[in-house]
Computed example of a mutant assay.
Amino acid sequence: MIHILASFKVKNDKLSNFISLCNELIEESRKEKGCISYHLQQNTEKENHLVFVEEWESNEAIEQHNASRHFTRIVPLLVEMCESAPIIQTFNKLV
């Protein structure tokens, strides 16, 4: 099992649009084979700091996700709305 944390610092005036696109990305991603969970979290102190918390069955499932039509269309739009490049971290479940 693999977890991904994808952290975004969104421009304040783009937050509503960002979240709207995230909802579409989440809806489509949850339908994918190998997706165990896919959520968006908002920092309680900095509302423009959002993190995708994803859980996948395998690296193959992640590769297919990253190549999907919805991912390749939406993620570049999300990045454009950010103050800086997102930070993507991948973790293997140990326990």
Rank of each mutant, 00 (worst) to 15 (best):
residue 2 I to K: 14
residue 8 F to H: 14
residue 8 F to G: 07
residue 9 K to A: 10
residue 10 V to M: 10
residue 11 K to C: 12
residue 13 D to F: 14
residue 13 D to W: 12
residue 13 D to L: 12
residue 14 K to D: 13
residue 15 L to T: 02
residue 17 N to A: 14
residue 17 N to T: 06
residue 18 F to N: 03
residue 18 F to W: 13
residue 19 I to S: 00
residue 23 N to R: 08
residue 25 L to M: 12
residue 26 I to V: 14
residue 26 I to L: 03
residue 27 E to N: 15
residue 28 E to C: 04
residue 30 R to P: 02
residue 30 R to H: 04
residue 30 R to Q: 15
residue 30 R to V: 06
residue 32 E to S: 06
residue 33 K to T: 10
residue 33 K to L: 14
residue 34 G to C: 11
residue 36 I to E: 13
residue 36 I to M: 10
residue 39 H to R: 08
residue 42 Q to R: 09
residue 42 Q to Y: 01
residue 43 N to F: 08
residue 43 N to R: 05
residue 44 T to W: 00
residue 45 E to Q: 15
residue 46 K to Y: 13
residue 49 H to R: 12
residue 49 H to Q: 13
residue 52 F to W: 05
residue 53 V to H: 15
residue 53 V to A: 11
residue 53 V to S: 13
residue 53 V to N: 04
residue 56 W to S: 12
residue 57 E to G: 01
residue 57 E to F: 04
residue 58 S to N: 04
residue 59 N to I: 07
residue 59 N to Y: 08
residue 63 E to Q: 14
residue 64 Q to L: 14
residue 64 Q to F: 13
residue 65 H to F: 09
residue 66 N to G: 03
residue 71 F to S: 00
residue 72 T to Q: 14
residue 73 R to A: 03
residue 77 L to A: 10
residue 78 L to K: 02
residue 79 V to S: 00
residue 79 V to D: 00
residue 79 V to F: 00
residue 79 V to M: 01
residue 81 M to D: 06
residue 81 M to N: 01
residue 82 C to P: 07
residue 82 C to G: 07
residue 86 P to K: 06
residue 87 I to A: 11
residue 89 Q to H: 11
residue 90 T to D: 00
residue 91 F to D: 01
residue 92 N to E: 14
residue 93 K to H: 09
residue 94 L to K: 07
residue 95 V to W: 11
residue 95 V to N: 09
